[in-house]
């Protein structure tokens, strides 16, 4: 079971600034371990963010994204208190979903 994501969603003007920090090994499948054996690829393949039932971001990732990646994006059409839900699925089928409420910019 993977660790939870850290999600921040902040409304600035009419845009929501979303920052997501994910805990994931993101193995490329090219690295070898101490015994010289290839470490199998293990990386996030799909990321989907939704708000009020609408998909606001959909991404396909590959092994070139770093370990413990951060993702930031902006979208419009939401208000303070709405919920942003982020889900990732990796190449082994593991998935994780976390959510955060949109707050007003400080």
């Amino acid at each position: 079971m993977s660790d939870p994501m850290r999600i921040r969603a902040q409304l600035t003007g009419d845009k929501v600034d979303v920052r997501v920090l994910m805990a994931h090994e993101m193995e490329t499948g090219l690295r070898k371990d101490a015994a010289g054996k290839i470490v199998p690829a293990h990386f996030i393949q799909n990321v989907i963010a939704t708000c009020n039932g609408k998909t606001v971001l959909s991404a396909q990732w590959g092994p070139s994204v770093s370990k413990n990646p951060t993702l930031s994006f902006r979208f419009s059409g939401a208000k303070v208190g709405d919920k942003v839900i982020v889900t990732w699925v990796d190449n082994k089928g593991d998935k994780r979903t976390d959510e955060a409420l949109i707050t007003a910019a400080a």
Binding site: S66, L71, F73
Partner: peptide, 10 residues
């Protein structure tokens, strides 16, 4: 890999 830490276009 180190440089490409963040994954959005920006």
């Amino acid at each position: 890999r180190t440089l490409i830490k963040a994954a959005t276009v920006s």
